[in-house]
């Protein structure tokens, strides 16, 4: 039994995230898919915490599980999507999807097979802690940070303009 506590937690988290990610794709009911996706987000947040990136983990939960998935659920509930009224997909579409997805997988595998992935020792790096992250963002990467904030602002203004048009 050479497994440390961290390896056990990693294993359990990974199994849950893979199973729930499969659930997103395989489930017939859109609401179940959304719930599976939320579980996946939580397990990924767990992985972030294992890497000592607490800030990233909690922001991941706030943004994805707390905001985006609520909107997803909102839309699905309003449209009352379910398996019966889902349009039947054509067969050739299914085959095309499977082939292109498979081709993408092959390319990804080929690209990543030779890539070197230096192992991060869990708990040894502090970059994910909020004060370090803040200092890095506002010293080293201040221009990209500000530019991305302008991007968000323009998206917000766009949404308001679209919302106003109907009146």
């Amino acid at each position: 039994m050479g497994m440390s506590l961290q390896q056990i937690i990693f294993g359990v988290l990974s199994v849950i995230s893979l199973v729930s990610a499969l659930g997103v794709v395989l489930s017939k009911n859109p609401v179940t898919s959304v719930l599976c996706l939320i579980v996946t987000f939580f397990t990924i947040a767990g992985h972030y915490i294992m890497l000592n990136a607490q800030f990233l983990a909690v922001v991941h939960i706030i943004v994805y599980a707390g905001a985006i998935m609520v909107l997803f659920l909102f839309v699905i509930m309003l449209m009352n999507l379910n398996a019966e009224i889902e349009p039947q997909k054509r067969n050739w579409l299914k085959y095309a999807g499977a082939i292109s997805g498979g081709a993408f997988l092959v390319v990804l595998l080929a690209a990543l097979r030779e890539a070197s992935m230096p192992a991060l020792l869990p708990g040894s790096n502090d970059i994910g802690l909020i004060s370090n992250l803040g200092k890095t963002l506002f010293n080293q990467y201040v221009v990209p940070f500000e530019v991305s904030s302008i991007l968000f602002l323009s998206a917000m203004v766009g949404a308001v303009v679209i919302g106003k048009k109907e009146n």
Partner: peptide, 25 residues
């Protein structure tokens, strides 16, 4: 005593809506 306590509170608050949404639906 986590160093992101405020964000944790905010995260949990943002999850609070699921119980109501799922139950109602």
């Amino acid at each position: 005593d986590i160093n992101i306590g405020m964000l944790y509170i905010f995260g949990v608050v943002s999850l609070g809506v699921y119980g109501i949404m799922l139950g109602g639906w």
